[in-house]
Simulated scan of single mutants.
Amino acid sequence: MADLPEWTIKGELILNCNCTVFCPCVVSLGAHPPTEGYCQAWSGIRIDKGQYGDTDLSGLNVGLVLDIPGMMGRGNWKAAAYIDERSSDEAYDALVKIFSGAAKGTTGLFSMLVSEFMGAERAPVEFTTEGKARRLMVGKTIQGEIVPVEGNDPDQDIVVSNTGYWMGPDITIATATKGKVRAYGRVWDFSGRSAEICQIDWKGPGR
């Protein structure tokens, strides 16, 4: 790890998967199977502030596609990354290292769990917020929108707090109003299914 640059990412992550109710992996830490027995998901990351060594990552977005055949902790994931087309060559390379797990740290588990990194490519990755809705648009590849599930007090989100989940300790329970994926031979629609929102503070190569 002494040869790897220090890196940090602070921002927000959204995710929509095929689970019919809130993702059991958040509280079971991957020890409980997804509600359908397997996990298919798309995710978006908005980087508010980030750096990889001397390379600035602030203001960039990333989209992910994940295909997991069973319990998350058993591995054999397939994953693909879509890197903001506004990224410099240095930022692109840094984000590929981070999201493939090669940069170690918070996302280092990807290098252990992902058996097939299907690819990374530049794309128009748009992560926008309107009211409480979050939208991720990656051309025609990912078209998603999620909203928090409304609680007893509509002004307060329903949050699972103080978890050991790798993404972050506090996960807002959400649902997808749109969740379409067309990538690597996969055609998915997870509209109306489980979603989550997480404020992220990741770093590497140590944790």
Rank of each mutant, 00 (worst) to 15 (best):
W7C: 11
V125Y: 06
Q40F: 00
R193H: 12
L15P: 00
T8E: 11
N162G: 05
N18C: 05
R46I: 01
R207A: 09
G53F: 03
E130D: 15
A79F: 10
D170C: 06
S43D: 07
L13G: 04
G131F: 05
A94P: 11
D3W: 11
Y184Q: 15
R135L: 01
L4G: 08
A79R: 15
V65R: 02
A94I: 04
Y184M: 04
M167H: 07
I200V: 15
F127M: 15
K49C: 01
R46W: 08
P124E: 05
A120R: 12
S28P: 01
N16V: 11
L57F: 08
F99R: 04
S87E: 02
F99K: 10
A176M: 08
F110I: 07
E12M: 05
V65C: 00
T141S: 10
G139L: 09
Y165M: 09
T55R: 01
M118S: 06
Y82G: 05
D54M: 06
R134S: 03
E12P: 00
L60T: 01
H32P: 01
R182C: 09
Y184E: 10
F99Q: 09
R182N: 14
E126N: 13
E12G: 00
A103L: 03
R122N: 07
L64W: 12
L57G: 10
G108W: 10
G59F: 07
K10N: 13
K97H: 03
R122L: 09
G192R: 06
G105Q: 13
G139M: 15
L136V: 14
N162M: 11
R186M: 15
T163Y: 03
L13Q: 12
A94H: 10
V27P: 01
L95I: 13
D189Q: 05
C25H: 03
S100Y: 01
R182T: 09
